[in-house]
Design a binder for these strands. Structure first.
Lengths: 200, 200, 200, 200
DNA sequence: GATGAATGAGGATTCATTCAT
DNA sequence: TATGAATGAATCCTCATTCAT
């Protein structure tokens, strides 16, 4: 059972679960709380999910799926609309697209992807194995973009570390970012990319 | 009761608690697990701490104290030993000192400071108020160093965002750093500072 | 609703239920397990049976019916085919026929009769009253045969106790008998009768 | 942890559990019922036993221990007090001693041994392995006594089957025996031995 | 200080049963 | 007849906390 084949009902439950997992953390979110928010009784939850772990798994799967989809979408838009640009300029656009996509799922959509990042440790081994390839795929997008940027002289340093630093900086934003503040997620993305990129 | 006045016994208990909170997370660490690791029975724990929350509070206090102490120590060593250097160079050294100190408490000492960062949300209001000034003090060290770096043209961009990004990148390292890997925390700190700093 | 008037579908469901009740015990057999084995969903089960108790009742009724039918059949075959024999010999044959019939339903047919014996306590009062006359009828066959055997000097002792002992020995065989072992149920029956009967 | 080393409190809890398991069956006995009868709250039960299975295990261990102890006691009394008797007579006394002991733990003491016999299937694999050697020891007492009886010409037939039959007859008595009836357990034992033994 | 026993509120989960479709 | 979703009461078990000894 994966995101693509899930019933609309189940998708809705997953969305609600994602919100609670972000607000309270997985451990502190009780099955009763989940059921309450879903408008059913706690016993009924187990008609849809085998156990609490499966809910977490479904949320994280959804989080990684949408992160991946939106990242690809942003990249595709780049290629479609791009006027010819310098190699340097192209590499920067690509990084920026990924950073924007990342913050869009993290701060705007603000739920399943956050759970994927912050509750990954709570996955049992079996679930983890089921999901790790999604994470790998996502990270591969970043790896490629960063390698290109390094090759173009846009970024300086070890590509792997740069990826960890960039993703860390972005991921941690969940902890301090307030949507009602003065900067948009897009501005954040731009600021991060600017702070790292060398001028041409 | 704060770190400075704590008995050696209590300090040891806090150290053990910190380790468990990192390994399992605060919510999943039971009072029984704590007691077991401390070589006492769970009932006895409450002779040392009023409740579980107080243990968390003590750990985080210890984490912030030591982060602050080590950061100050690194900065002091700078001033003591520094040959005259360019303003640019000085600003870089200061950032590096803070980053090294941060990773030292996070990755080497590897416990109380990690709890302070990752379990802050679990603090009840009262505990939070008790501790927030420590966090502010610590962040002030970073704020100043970054403002100086920006003023010196070493870093580019908004100082507040730069601090969030740098701390995010460092904090997230807890999630992926493996001590048995090929890079030391110091090398990490250097790589981060290098990746952000403009050459003179 | 009793066995005689049951639809073929219902009879099949009862057979499946009997098997599960033997394998798992009544308490541990869930309505969902029953439905699953029957190839329907658990909600549908309640179109066939008012509740779980009715299933147990139907199984035990079937078990007692078939035990009774097969015992009578064995006895009838005796009378039909018997060459004139000594009173002693006749009494022995009759005991043997009952023992064989008992083990046939218990070990060969191996289900509903076992449930009747081992899950009788789980019957609610109403169901018990509905079924107790069947059990009485069955036990009457044994009572008569044993009284004849005692009168003929074939068995020694109190007739009531002898019945309890014989049935106990036979019923308990469910617990240790393995069909793949070296003895057939018929050989068991013979061995039991032999062990109790005095030679002429 | 075994019967011999158990605290008095635990022994009492085991005794109460044994009674409930006989009255209701293991599956239908809830931890709440157990706690209620023990005069504690259900959570407190788990201070004494890791889980419900451990309670069953403790009860069955106690049942097998006492069955073994009482059987040995009866046999010892035989040897101590016996005037010289015929081999035939001796074999009969030995069977009788075992049968009496068996019914004493089953019908008089009436609890833990009954659970051992009737709830053995509910033991999980690990518990079963822990207990099976006790059962083997107990059955060995019977095996020896029956082999001697067969050798002495007292019993007729296969020794293994004879043991299964005798134990089955005795075990099943739990289902029909009423202490307020006219026969004592000792009389039952005598009746069973008499019904099987050949006169000299 | 330390302990073992107890508590009580709450944890996830199970399950017979109901019912609209 | 059949189903999928829901129910609600009950299940075993966990855990921070208390307290007499």
């Amino acid at each position: 059972m994966n995101v693509a084949t899930a019933s609309p009902r189940r998708k809705e439950l997953v969305r609600i679960a994602a919100r609670l997992f972000v607000e309270e953390g997985f451990d502190r979110t009780t099955v009763r709380m989940l059921a309450q928010e879903m408008g059913i009784k706690s016993g009924s939850l187990f008609h849809h999910f085998a156990d609490k772990q499966e809910i977490l798994c479904a949320v994280i799967e959804e989080g990684m799926f949408s992160a991946l989809a939106i990242a690809r979408e942003h990249l595709a838009r780049l290629e479609a609309g791009s006027a010819p640009a310098s190699r340097h300029q192209q590499a920067r656009e690509r990084l920026l697209a990924l950073a924007r996509a990342h913050l869009e799922t993290l701060l705007t959509d603000r739920n399943a992807h956050v759970v994927a990042l912050y509750e990954w440790r709570r996955l049992e081994q079996a679930s983890r194995e089921h999901l790790v390839h999604l994470r790998d795929e996502y990270e591969a997008l970043w790896r490629d973009a960063i390698e290109v940027a390094v090759a173009a002289g846009l970024l300086k340093g070890d590509a792997l570390l740069l990826r960890q630093f960039m993703l860390g900086a972005l991921n941690w934003s969940v902890r301090w970012y307030r949507p009602e503040g003065e900067r948009s997620p897009d501005e954040l993305a731009e600021a991060l990319v600017d702070s790292l990129c060398r001028l041409p």
